[in-house]
């Protein structure tokens, strides 16, 4: 589906994401890496990781609020057969676990810290994603 280049919305959204990451770091010293947050579903939560559950609740509340008041903003669908959705999900889950991060942890938080691992990871997954999307799409 065609989407329109939306620099203003992108800048506002990017600012919100950046502000949330910044405050989490400044207030509580934590990195807003969503793959790590999701992984906490498996591990026993302790006082050091309980924040991840709260963060997930916040993400859901954002989704629910938009779904109620401006559902058109949440549009989107996957144009893949079910088996490919499963393959893609498995790859995202396994990949972000092995790499210890995804677009938020490595991309936003790590690259801005000039972490070499985050630069290597982000450049790699970006390049592979571009190649994959062009071959499949």
């Amino acid at each position: 589906m065609v989407t329109e280049f939306s620099p203003v919305a992108a800048a506002i959204g990017g600012a919100l994401i950046g502000i949330a990451c910044a405050l989490l770091l400044v207030l509580y010293g934590k990195i807003a890496g969503i793959s790590g947050v999701v992984k906490s579903i498996f591990t026993k939560t302790n006082s050091g990781s309980r924040w991840k559950i709260y963060f997930i609740i916040g993400l859901f509340l954002a989704g629910i609020t938009v779904q109620v008041f401006a559902p058109s903003l949440l549009e989107g669908e996957l144009h893949l057969p079910p088996w490919l959705i499963i393959v893609a999900g498995l790859l995202v889950g396994a990949g972000t676990t092995l790499a210890n991060g995804c677009t938020s942890g490595h991309g936003v938080c790590g690259m801005s810290r000039f972490s070499t691992r985050s630069w290597v990871s982000t450049c790699t997954f970006m390049a592979v994603a571009i190649i994959t999307a062009n071959l499949v799409g």
């Binding site: 969503i34 793959s35 947050v37 999701v38 993400l59 996957l78 893949l80 490919l84 959705i85 393959v87 893609a88 999900g89 498995l90 790859l91 995202v92 889950g93 396994a94 990949g95 972000t96 676990t97 092995l98 790499a99 210890n100 995804c102 677009t103 938020s104 490595h106 290597v120 990871s121 982000t122 790699t124 997954f125 970006m126 390049a127 592979v128 994603a129 571009i130 190649i131 994959t132 999307a133 499949v136």
Partner: peptide, 18 residues
């Protein structure tokens, strides 16, 4: 390897964990 796998899944679906 993790980044390559993630890139494959992301490039296929357009969806990352967040």
């Amino acid at each position: 390897i993790g980044s390559v796998l993630f890139g494959l899944g992301w490039g296929l679906s357009g969806i990352c964990p967040g």
